[in-house]
């Protein structure tokens, strides 16, 4: 499977995502430059963490207008895989590929810490290697990761089982104390209705090696590799994604 990792000006975890894909998972991974439109034939585009355009104005607000994003939106519409981590998640929300928005953490502070996540939905190409309700540990590091959406959207997300990951405590309860940023319903990651676009605040690329942050995020990547190999995911093409 071929992966593309976009570098916006201000992307930071692009190197780490490429390292995880290439060195750890042995995938064919290429770097994509924000000023270009060519996706180099990739099966999945990963929008990495960082501070695209310094996060000036709003996180992800300017990156969504990069030339490369036209092609990314197009790929998503065709049913291709698009995956946003942290700042990438923010870009996907700004671009309307995922519903809702990410605002300042409740504490007003940047937080870097490992968190416990409960896998809420395994019938997605990104989580098929987990069992429902499984608890995994992946680090977060963000200042604006508080997920919000209007009540109707939120209800739809829950009803359609689009909430994929939720912040929980070590016994698996989604309590306010286990919620690091104030996200509504403890939401850490969601997919779109067609399940080919995935955004999450935690950084799975920093949880793929025993020595460096553990392996809690490894199976997110393996899930997509499996889904791609099996051709099991048949997104409902031609349906407008997002809201």
């Amino acid at each position: 499977m071929r992966w593309g990792v976009v570098t916006f000006p201000g992307s930071n975890d692009d190197h780490d995502a490429l390292y995880a894909l290439d060195h750890v998972l042995g995938q064919d991974a290429v770097s994509l430059w924000h000023k270009e439109r060519d996706l180099k034939g990739v099966d999945c585009v990963l929008l990495p963490g960082g501070f695209s355009y310094g996060d000036y104005l709003r996180c992800g607000a300017m990156a969504r207008f990069s030339p490369i994003m036209e092609s990314v939106v197009e790929l998503a519409r065709r049913g291709g895989f698009v995956w946003g981590v942290c700042n990438g998640f923010q870009v996907l929300c700004e671009a309307g590929l995922l519903p809702g928005a990410l605002i300042r953490n409740r504490s007003l502070q940047f937080i870097c810490t490992p968190v416990q996540l409960r896998v809420e939905e395994t019938e997605t190409p990104f989580t098929n290697q987990y069992t429902r309700g499984e608890i995994i540990s992946i680090p977060i590091k963000h200042g604006e990761g508080c997920y919000i959406a209007d009540p109707v959207t939120l209800e739809q997300l829950e009803e359609n089982r689009q909430v994929v990951l939720r912040y929980v405590d070590s016994s698996g309860r989604a309590t306010p104390e286990a919620n690091p940023n104030g996200a509504l319903n403890n939401i850490a990651g969601i997919v779109n209705a067609q399940r080919n676009v995935f955004g999450l605040m935690p950084h799975p690329e920093h949880a793929v090696e025993k020595l460096v942050g553990g392996e809690g995020g490894l199976r997110l990547f393996q899930s997509l590799i499996t889904a791609h190999a099996d051709g099991t995911h048949r997104p409902a093409a031609a349906v407008a994604p997002g809201h």
């Binding site: 104005l57 709003r58 607000a61 300017m62 207008f65 929300c93 700004e94 809702g100 928005a101 605002i103 919000i148 959406a149 209007d150």
Partner: peptide
């Protein structure tokens, strides 16, 4: 288009 995000 840019300056405000209608969601928030």
């Amino acid at each position: 288009r840019l300056l405000a995000n209608g969601v928030i």
